[in-house]
Simulated scan of single mutants.
Amino acid sequence: MPIVDGHAVADSLDYDTCIPIVRQAMTALSKGETQQLPRGVLPLDHGHMFGVMPGALNGGPFGGGPFGAKLVAVFPDNFDKGLPSHQGVIVLFDRDSGRPVGVVDGGEVTAIRTAAASAVATDALARPEAKTLALLGYGEQALTHARAITRVRRLSRITVWGRAPGRAAAFAARLAEELGLSVRATASAQEAVVDADIVCTVTAAKEPILNGAWVAPGAHVNVVGSSIAGPAEVDHDLVIRSRFIADCREHVLRQGAEFLRAKAAGLIGDAHVVAEIGEVLAGHAEGRQSAEQVTLYKSLGHVVQDLAAAWPLLKKD
C-alpha cells in the first residue's frame, strides 16, 4: 500500500494546485455531491485531542472518487517543541472494491488545505483591491496562510501579532525574507488589524483575541484557529456585525465556537449563518454585499477538503 509522507506532500501539493482543488471540494459539498459526518473528538489529557473525520467524494468533479477518513492528533503544546500541532493520516479507500488505496500524511495536507480554503474564501469575499493582511498568530497556519493569501491578492504589507513579541518578530522577519514583502510585528492585536483589509486568526486562544470594534469597515476576516465548540478567537461584536459564511453550515451550527457563544448569549440565531462558502462559489448565495460590509469566513475544516487534496497524490494516471 502506498504511503505518502509529509515531504512528498509538500513537494507535490503546492498552493496553485491545492486552491482550485479545495474550491471544487467546497462547491461539491454545498451541492450535496459529497458525504461527511461531524468530526468525532476524543478529549485526551493535558488539553490534547484525537479526532476522526469520515467522508466520501461522490459526484461532480469527484465522481467515482474515494471514501475514507482522517485520523488526527491535536497537541497544541507541540509548538514549543518544534513539532506540528496537528499530526495524523488520511486513509483513502477504492469506491468499487473497498480496497485501501493508500495513506497520506494528514498533518501536511491539513496545513496546506486549511490555508488554501481560507484563500478561496478570501478570493470570494474580500474586496478585489484588498492589499493589506493581518495575521494573529505566528505558528504553522500563520505561515501557510500568508503563502496562500498571496496567491489570491497582491499584498503590499503584512502585520503580525502574537503573545510572545520575540517570536512574532522572528516570524515577521522570516516571512519578509520569504515573500519579499513588508512584514511588521505589532505590540497588540488591535494595532495589527486596525487598517487591515484581510485578517486571519490562526491561534490556539481559548478566549477572544480579536474584537469587532477594531476591524475596519470593508475588511474580510478568516476565523480559523478554533475547530471545536469551546475555544473562541473573536468576540460577539465581530460575529454580530459581520456577514457570517461557514465552510459547512451543519458543522458550524454544532461546533463553531464563536457562533455558538453569541447564540448562547441570545444575540443571534441559526439564520445568522447566511451561507456556506460553496454556495457563494456556485452563485447560489450572495457573498460580499457592499464595500463597507465586514465579511467573516468560519473555518472548521472538513474531511471533504482532505480527501480531495489527498486523492491526486495517490491517483495513478
Rank of each mutant, 00 (worst) to 15 (best):
I3D: 02
G6E: 03
H7V: 13
V9K: 07
L13I: 07
D14E: 01
D16E: 13
D16S: 12
V22W: 09
T27N: 01
G32C: 03
E33N: 07
Q35Y: 14
R39W: 11
L42S: 11
L42P: 05
P43W: 11
L44D: 09
M53A: 00
P54F: 10
A56V: 04
G59D: 14
G59F: 06
P66A: 02
P66Q: 00
F67A: 09
G68R: 03
A69K: 00
A69M: 13
F75K: 04
F75W: 01
F75P: 00
P76Y: 09
N78T: 02
F79N: 01
D80W: 00
L83Q: 13
L83S: 00
G88E: 03
I90K: 00
L92F: 09
L92M: 10
F93C: 10
D94N: 15
D94H: 11
R99H: 14
P100F: 13
V101K: 14
G107A: 10
E108N: 03
E108P: 02
R113H: 08
R113D: 08
R113N: 05
A116K: 06
A117G: 15
A117K: 03
V120R: 04
A121P: 09
T122E: 05
D123L: 06
R127Y: 08
L133T: 12
L133V: 12
L135P: 10
Y138D: 12
Q141H: 15
A142E: 08
L143Q: 13
H145R: 08
R147I: 07
R147C: 06
A148I: 12
I158N: 13
R163Q: 13
A168G: 15
A169V: 15
A169G: 07
A170H: 13
A172Q: 06
E177F: 06
A185S: 14
T186K: 06
A187L: 08
A189W: 05
A192L: 03
V194G: 00
D197M: 03
V202T: 15
A204P: 09
A205H: 01
K206C: 05
E207P: 01
E207C: 00
P208C: 04
G212A: 09
G212C: 05
V215T: 13
S227V: 14
P231T: 06
D235S: 10
L238V: 08
F244V: 02
E250G: 06
L253P: 03
A257T: 04
L260N: 07
R261G: 07
L267Y: 07
G269S: 12
A271N: 14
A275G: 05
E276R: 03
V280W: 02
L281V: 05
A285G: 04
A285E: 07
Q289E: 12
A291S: 14
L296M: 15
Y297L: 07
Y297D: 01
S299R: 02
H302Y: 12
V303M: 11
V304D: 00
D306V: 05
A308T: 12
A309F: 14
W311H: 13
L314C: 10
K316G: 02
